[in-house]
């Protein structure tokens, strides 16, 4: 359904930008935010992009939404070349791809009431009569767990969790096929995170959504996604089924991501801290070569041949 082929997005730094990076960053002229990424997402699948901040996952999402124009590469949405679209045709396709962003405080217009915010996509895409729109908005707010009382409220009156529910309602009101969720829970409290994850699961089923879920944390992904791609420095280093990532991570970067998560259990934490201490610190060099299929549906960036351990050049 969504196919991404050799996507690149490079940012050229201006002279002043370079000087600004000063003594810390090496003198680079270009930031390769997304550096040759390819993957496909099937209809109805939920696909996770995971990596630490600065690995390019958000840039990639913005390219998929065409909020940024990629430097090179192709994006096919429902078989059509999405990057070649423009004008009315682009607008028509865009209503089928919607997004939820990380910061529920920044992504809602503070001067619009909740009702207006959720209705706006329908107005932009000329969908339904005034009355039908109102009905739709009411129905969606109900589905995300808000009631009619909230219709005339403003974003500042809502909590973070409620705002993220509004953002979800807004994204789903045009009945999209693909939902791009860029860290939708990471700015929320842990108890609220669980509520939103449950809600996402319900909505996914009800709307038969395809989900591109972006997160810097792995635990949440386990409950929500079918496949995971781990990104590092603009490239995908490991791509496989969610279960495989947790049970049989092959790339050292993936393992590091998995080990870093502090678990809510003092005994486990103490043991892991001890293990981390004994291990020598890993060298900065990561193997970032081409993806190779080492087992069925398990792709790892070059140089790693599997758990039996030859040619492990890291």
């Amino acid at each position: 359904m969504l196919e991404i082929k050799k996507l690149y997005k490079h940012f050229v730094l201006s002279r002043t930008g370079q000087r600004g990076l000063g003594p810390i960053a090496e003198n680079r002229e270009m930031i390769r935010a997304v550096d040759g990424v390819s993957f496909t997402i099937d209809q109805g699948e939920s696909f996770a992009l995971v990596g630490e901040s600065g690995c390019g996952k958000t840039t990639l999402a913005r390219c998929v939404l065409r909020l940024l124009e990629p430097t090179a590469g192709q994006i096919f949405f429902m078989g059509k070349d999405f990057l070649a679209l423009s004008g009315a045709e682009l607008r028509r396709q865009r209503k089928r791809i919607q997004a939820v962003f990380q910061d529920p405080y920044g992504s809602l217009n503070p001067r619009m009431s909740i009702g207006k915010i959720v209705e706006e996509p329908l107005v932009i895409h000329h969908l339904g009569t005034h009355r039908e729109r109102k009905e739709q908005v009411g129905e969606l707010l109900h589905m995300v767990g808000l009631d009619d009382k909230q219709l005339n409220r403003y974003p500042e009156e809502l909590s973070g969790g409620q705002r993220q529910r509004v953002a979800l309602a807004r994204a789903l009101v045009t009945r999209p096929d693909l939902l791009v969720a860029d860290e939708p829970v990471s700015s929320l409290d842990i108890s609220i995170q669980a509520q939103i994850v449950n809600l996402l699961q319900t909505l996914e089923r009800e709307f038969q959504l395809t989900l591109l879920f972006i997160s810097h944390g792995l635990p949440i992904v386990r409950h929500l996604c079918d496949r995971v791609a781990v990104m590092c420095q603009g490239r995908i280093v490991e791509l496989t089924k969610t279960r495989e990532i947790f049970e049989n991570p092959l790339h050292p970067y993936t393992r590091e991501l998995l080990e870093g998560v502090p678990e809510p259990d003092p005994r486990i934490q103490r043991r892991e801290a001890g293990q981390r201490k004994q291990r020598p610190p890993r060298a900065g060099s990561q193997s970032l070569g081409e993806l190779e299929e080492v087992a069925k549906d398990h792709w790892v960036a070059g140089g790693i041949r599997g758990p039996w351990g030859f040619n492990l050049n890291f």
Binding site: I190, S191, R243
Partner: peptide
């Protein structure tokens, strides 16, 4: 709730 998120079993 936290343990649910970190659980090793998909829920």
């Amino acid at each position: 709730s936290v343990a649910g998120i970190y659980s090793h079993v998909k829920q």
